[in-house]
Amino acid sequence: MSNKEKTWKEISIAGVPPKSSIGFLTGDWKTYMPIRDLEKCTICLTCVMLCPEGAIAFLPEKNKIQIDLGFCKGCGICANECPTKAITMKMPEEEE
């Protein structure tokens, strides 16, 4: 246990969590990362809907899709389901 953890006097009762999981990054779970081919992407939003992590955001004002690698666990559902095959899963070094 680290010193960052609080004492019983400092925390609210009954385990009410004081933090949103938005602060808990899961991006380092992944082996493969999704790489998008922007020319093939039709912004159909299939990946946004089916991503279990909510890691693919649709930005309506820009009409763009953005993948948040901070949460992406690399499952590959987006690549598997993309109707235009605009997403491929790659090892980070392959990408570099």
Partner: peptide, 8 residues
Amino acid sequence: SGHRACAG
């Protein structure tokens, strides 16, 4: 986001 479900 930030939940602990398995990938996929």
